[in-house]
Structures are given as structure tokens and as C-alpha cells.
Write a protein that binds this DNA or RNA. Sequence first.
DNA 1: CCAAAAATATACCGATTGGTATTTTAATAT
DNA 2: ATATTAAAATACCAATCGGTATATTTTTGG
Lengths: 195, 195
Amino acid sequence: MTKAEKTRNFIVEKTAPIFNMKGYAGTSLNDITAATGLTKGSIYGNFANKDEVALAAFDYNLNNVSSRIEAEMSRQTTIKDKLLVYIDIYQKFIDGSVSEGGCPVLNTAIDADDTHPELRNRVLKAVLDWKNKIAKLVEAGIANKEISADQHPEQIALTIIAMVEGGIMISKLTSKTEYWSLIMGSLKKYVDGLG
Amino acid sequence: MTKAEKTRNFIVEKTAPIFNMKGYAGTSLNDITAATGLTKGSIYGNFANKDEVALAAFDYNLNNVSSRIEAEMSRQTTIKDKLLVYIDIYQKFIDGSVSEGGCPVLNTAIDADDTHPELRNRVLKAVLDWKNKIAKLVEAGIANKEISADQHPEQIALTIIAMVEGGIMISKLTSKTEYWSLIMGSLKKYVDGLG
DNA sequence: CCAAAAATATACCGATTGGTATTTTAATAT
DNA sequence: ATATTAAAATACCAATCGGTATATTTTTGG
């Protein structure tokens, strides 16, 4: 890893939580230099512009959550347990014990969908990938009789994502982990009722 | 209504969709003057600062959705049908046939929760009021035997809000009304299963 | 250790930000 | 109709915005 690569990573690590909390328009270059301790010249020596930093920060934030989810999923044996890993993982993103600012998918979707096409495309891909991943899990669950055959994989995937992301919005806004538990209780019941 | 009141309303009407789409930090005073055709002097003659415009715009956007929901709810007779009015109402907010930028509660919650305490407090109150309103409906449903007595009103309220708001995020981001239909299909099933 | 190259810091740029003091225009009450 | 008041437009402000050219410092290969 060259010095430039190290610095690039360093900048992304330090600014990713800021972009996640303040959004693209709300994060200034002053925020970026303050968080890194670097100067504007150094930032622009490693990134062409603010957009590139924001895009890299989103990728970093997304990988941060999806890698944790993937790791936890591989520890689970049943499909239903795999579908429920979001509950524990995202709790940590809500209470701030892991990253700051909540879910980057939700934040970036709201932040960028009417304002920043490039960023929107990335989070769009993330949501579609997420949906397809869950749908495939459901198909596997149908194949091994864990889930009944009359279930609609895509619908289940979308419903799970909606409950998770909606739950994050509510719990983060209200700072009530109890609300997260209640909503996730409904999700458990939903997944349990799939077959 | 005095001239000043008229102008105030005019400014709020014109800028409300912009704040809903671009967020607080993303909406500049230039956006405001461009949307209204007024000058900065006129804006600041009617509002103390940008914050006041943003707060008034949120109130306007919130009232826009909640008044439509209330009107549609009063047309429904059963509790379950009342709980399902969000499906049709919010579809119009997603496809842009009514207002622009999606749900102001979701947008403002994500935009403000880490950045703008005053705006956050307003949307926080909106979500809690919304939750309490649904919980009361559920209690009425339990009272008239429409919903079984072992159901948890607050949990149901939070679950419905989560599914609606999560569904809005997905459907707006992907521009797929089909996804909205699928998620709302799950909501219907959920509400139907309450008793 | 030393020269070439790479990375960072400094100093600056025009444009835009939110906001204000003052002047001009429009509305209103007598 | 006119004097008074209210509202809107003009012209300005310092600060910050994203970005760049250049100088200085580090790193790296020989």
C-alpha cells in the first residue's frame, strides 16, 4: 500500500461518518479537513473533487454494514435465522455503538434521490442487490422446505428491507431502542410465519 | 388576511417542495428567491432567517399529508380500513402526482436528526403523534372486537409506520410503484391478521 | 546518502452563502 | 386624495463555499 493509498483510506475512514450524518450538501470541505487534520491541498491531491470523497465514503459505509451482516449470516445455519441477522447488527448502528449516523443506505437514499444522480445510482444498486440477496435466501428456504412454496421471494425481501429501514428511521429519531425491539418483534413474527 | 400573511403563505407554499427534496442544508436562499420570484429583502421581511422558513415549510408539508390522511380516514368505517388509508395516500406522494419529494416525515427525520435540533423536535413530535393516533385506533379496534385483545397497540402502530416509511424509501429510490404494491400487500396481510 | 518523484501545505481564486441597512414602492386608514 | 405605514427591492456585508496553482516537505529508489 503506497502512501497515497493509505492517505486515501484515512480520508475516507475519517469522513465517512460525517457524510453519513450530515449528507452530501451538509458536509463541507472544511468538515473534511477538520476531521482528517489534513489541508485542502492534500485532499485534492488524493481526490478529484468533493463528489469523489462522498462516493468513496458511501462505499466505505456500505461495506461496513454489509460485511458485518455477511459475517453474521455465515454463522447462522437456517434460512430464517439468516433473515433475522439485521436485527442485532442494525441495533448497533442505531445506538451508535458501532458507526455513527444510522444506516448509510437509508441516509443516502433520502439525501441523494432528488439531488445527486451519481450517489443515487450507488444506493439504488445497493438496495437492488440487497433485495436480490434476500430473495435468493427465500428461494433457498423454499427449496429446503423451511419456507412454504406459495411465498413470493421478492415481496418478502422488500418487506423485510422496509421494516428494517423504517424501524431504523423511527428508532434513531426517537432514540428509543425499545421501539426497535417492538418493530423487530413484528419482523420475527413475520419471518416465523413464512412457513 | 393581511398582505404579509399572504406573502408568508406564498413563500411557504413555493419553498415547501424544495425543502422536502433538497433538505435544509441543500436549500439555499437563492433557491427560495428563485422559487418565489421575490427578493431576499422580501423573504427576510417575512421570516427572521432560513430556519424559520424551513420550519414553516415542514409544518406545511406535514399538514399536507396528514390532512389528506385524516380526510380519507373519516370516509372509512372499520378500524382496519382506517389503518390502510396510508396505502393509497402515500402512493400519490411517491409517484409525484400530489406533492414532490416523498414523505416529509421521512425526509426531515433523516435530514435533521443529527444536524438540526429544532427541525428534529418537530418531526419527532410528528412521529410520536402518528404512533399514538394509530395506537388509539388499535385500542378502539380491540374494544369493538375487530382486533384481538392480545395485540399490542404501540407495537402495531410502530410496525405500520415502519413498513410505510421503509416502503416509501424503497419505492421512491427505485421509482418502482410495483415495489410499493408488494410491500403494501404485506401490510394488508399484517393488518388483516390482527384479529 | 542523495537525487527524483510523490505527497502535502500554503496561499490564493471567483462564486456563493446567509444576512442586513437603506431606499423605493405599494397598501391602507383617515 | 393624501399622509402614514407596511412591504418589497436594491445594494451591500463578511464569511464560507469548492477548487487550484505553486511552494515546500516527505517519501522512495538507486
